[in-house]
Design a protein around this nucleic acid. Sequence first.
RNA 1: GCGCUUGUGGCUCAAUUGGAUAGAGCAUCAGACUUCGGAUCUGAGGGUUAGAGGUUCGAGUCCUCUCAGGCGUACCA
Length: 565
Amino acid sequence: MKLKSQINHVIKEAFIKAGIELEPMSVSEASKPEFGDFQFNGAMALSKKLSKKPRDIASQILENLDLTGILSKAEIAGPGFINLWLNPLWLAKECHDALHDDRLGIGLRDTPIKVVVDYSGPNMAKQMHVGHLRSTIIGDTLANLLTFLGDEVIRQNHIGDWGTQFGMLIAYLEEMHEDGNVSLKDLEQFYKDAKARFDADTHFSNKAREYVVKIQSGDKHCLQLWQKFIDISLGHCEEVYEKLDVKLTRNDVRAESFYNDDLSQVISILREQGMLEQSNGAQCVFLEGDEVPVIVQKGDGGYLYATTDLAALRYRAQKLGAKRISYVVDARQAEHFKQVFRVAKEAGFVGGDVLLEHVAFGTMMDKGGKPFKTRDGGTVKLIDLLDEAIVKAKETINNKEEYTQDKIDEIAKVIGIGAVKYADLSINRESNYIFNWDKMLSFEGNTSLYMQYGYARIQSIFRKHNAQIQGDIIIGDSVEHRLATMLLRFEDVLNRAAADASPNQITTYLYELVTLFMRFYEQNPILKTGVDEKTKMSRLQLSAFTAKTIKQGLEILGIKVVDKL
RNA sequence: GCGCUUGUGGCUCAAUUGGAUAGAGCAUCAGACUUCGGAUCUGAGGGUUAGAGGUUCGAGUCCUCUCAGGCGUACCA
């Protein structure tokens, strides 16, 4: 239900009937219940253009407003706001229809586009750490969301598998030969050991440097070793993805190495375009207004990450045909992407109609506001963090005898992982995020457990009712009215969240929805004695609609629900 | 130095992209239990939105300056 655009349509008709030829601005949700459900603020904005008093314009619109369909009431307030009330009968019918629709009445895009979402991007030389968490889950959410809305989403995992360090790593792997699985178990340690060996033994370090060249020139033996290393390392990542319940697979991997053959081409195209300039021995693109250039080739002939990113942009726009390319990457790389995007457009790698966006996010901090580290100052491995979340979640579960150990494990995983994801996704992605176990696993406030609790509560009602539900929805009081309106707003919220690539708009919505439902539930008995059948059926349907919306919303966030906590 | 970015009750976050009296949760205080799951709900106190100007019908949001923090700043990614 595109609620706003439906109301906008009614306003537009009033404009036409009133003889106002300008395009009306969009309505917005009322800031308070007293001000109705929606409000139209366009009268003030038109005041100057029409050289009339805002209130006169407002009443002119009001006189021509159709109050027989979607809207039932409208009032002028303050300097010229028009407050709008939705028609309860219309609300009831729309809720009924949406509830019985597989997609909750949410339409697919009229003109779907191909979207590349680039996210996660772990480095194969190291184990995934907490720094990868945000990219992975924000990216996954964006991909889920756009897919749900009907876009053709291409997930891309731009893993770091190329560069000087891999010579050292595969040389060391070769030395350890047999059973790489065991020796690579702790990648961090493996890296440290290899580095120690590299620093201590010149024979080894020479070999490592040799191997770098050999991989890049396609030496079979070295490539085999490299491939083995990557496979094992990627296996570690997949373990994390599985635990995180993220949809990335091996098919989504387009590693840095994938673009290796395109790099020289990128340089030659830039040269043909006359964009290249030699500076201090390096090949650079100088952008107007920027002091620092984009370096695309080092003095020694080597390529850089900007080069690879340009090749990737070219591939995504030209080969994959993407019209929107979203990079879910740490905010600290804002400068880099701004430059690379500009170069890509100016060089014609990417057409002018393609939206390039850096979906930036802030750093994860500890309670004291310092970057998140282990006690001894090391990076926190992502897998350890997730395991801890599951252990902590287990402690919060009501330990009833009815649960088997397997069931508890299952619930703990859903709850624990969901809590980690929700806590992250629920804050504005651009600000730094303070990681706090207690807050994350609390049942109070805007947390995943509050949503889970709300959902479980509704499931409990249905377990108790356990019979057919039929009849109409009747909007009985103001709480039901607000709940119904909130439910129908879901599509607007999703579209907005998709346009802004901001998952926290979804969590904010879900929190408001569940809060409203809790109030409804406290005030309006459903199964208690004394509730007449029609009211009961109506309230059951509102509850069912709420539960479905919670489930769908959390699913987009990559969070599962459980029927019982 | 230059550039980007952030600054909202004690704490953690919102604010429909310029709309009405800046909203929530935690914490504090006061209420509601013969519970459709109280892991809940109702209410109270707590703010010159870092500061100063400006733009206009209207500013937490836009512009300028100041203060404070974070990040980036040519051959790592």
